[in-house]
């Protein structure tokens, strides 16, 4: 009966995930210029080399690394603050936790739409506020400069993912027995020292999970960029470069090659975190 019950899942995964991946790998080894109806030519790893040499793909890789670094840093720092503030019982905690979850539940396209008006150069609220405070003299086109655009897009992404990271860290804090704190308090440890020497080390497994999830979500960032700045070159992520290569330029071999590189890096990072923190994520 076990075999029968897992059969649908196994067949679906094999036929619609694993088989396409193998086909995709095959496509990534063929030449791109088959539009004239000729047989695809085997070019080995040539497409991978092309992709890594292309300047737009290189920029996209740099942008994605920045998105991931910014997102994971913000998520862990803010997530720890949220978790410390919310992990103990207080009146109204249920409502606060329910509200905390909402940004995660919203489609990321909608998050982008909500924040778009804030960053709009002409009618945006950010420019207006800065001008009223006399911090800037003329409206700033936030999405035109690369530095600001990357930071602000990462911020919108963090808005959606922070709830998930916070929940993981809250669960981690709750699993630390209260006695550890009272014992160390008797020994004269200050709250700050307790946080550094007790909370952080005991929280390592939860931090590993949060880090993995934060990275895996940020590395495939697309929706927020699309809504806030379209497919513009100054904010393009790897996935967006894949989208552009594959579907706008109709170049499947190069697009698939880049997508598979991204897949490999994601898998390696996930495995790396699991090993580094000495505990599997399950």
């Amino acid at each position: 009966m076990g075999m029968l019950m897992v059969a649908p899942a196994v067949i679906i995964t094999a036929a619609l995930v694993v088989y396409p991946l193998i086909k995709g790998f095959q496509t990534s080894l063929e030449s791109a210029d088959t539009a004239v109806g000729g047989q695809p030519r085997f070019v080995g790893l040539g497409n991978y080399g092309d992709v890594l040499r292309s300047s737009t793909a290189r920029d996209a890789i740099v942008h994605t690394v920045i998105y991931v670094a910014l997102a994971v840093t913000f998520e862990l720092m803010l997530g720890l603050i949220v978790a410390v503030a919310l992990h103990r019982a207080f009146r109204g905690r249920g409502i606060v936790l329910a509200i905390l979850l909402v940004p995660w539940a919203l489609p990321s396209v909608v998050s982008g739409v909500l924040w778009r008006r804030v960053f709009d150069p002409d009618s945006g609220l950010l420019n207006s506020m800065l001008q009223q405070l006399h911090l800037v003299s003329h409206p700033h086109v936030w999405m035109a400069s690369r530095g600001w655009a990357l930071v602000l897009i990462a911020l919108v992404h963090v808005w959606g993912v922070l709830p998930l990271v916070s929940l993981i860290l809250i669960a981690g804090l709750q699993s630390i027995p209260e006695e550890v704190y009272s014992a160390s308090a008797v020994d004269g440890a200050t709250p700050l020292r307790q946080f550094r020497h007790i909370t952080l080390p005991l929280l390592r497994p939860s931090i590993a999970v949060a880090l993995t999830i934060g990275t895996v979500w940020a590395i495939k960032i697309f929706d927020e960029i699309y809504v806030l700045n379209g497919t513009a070159l100054n904010t393009r992520s790897i996935l967006m470069e894949v989208y552009n290569t594959t579907f706008v330029n109709a170049d499947f071999p190069h697009g698939t090659a880049l997508a598979l590189l991204l897949t490999a890096v994601t898998a390696l990072l996930a495995a790396g975190y699991a090993v580094a923190f000495g505990r599997s994520t399950t």
């Binding site: 995709g24 496509t27 590395i219 495939k220 499947f252 698939t256 997508a259 991204l262 897949t263």
Partner: peptide, 9 residues
């Protein structure tokens, strides 16, 4: 595996 990779294939 990013969903996108599967969808292209």
């Amino acid at each position: 595996v990013p969903v996108f990779t599967v969808v292209i294939a």
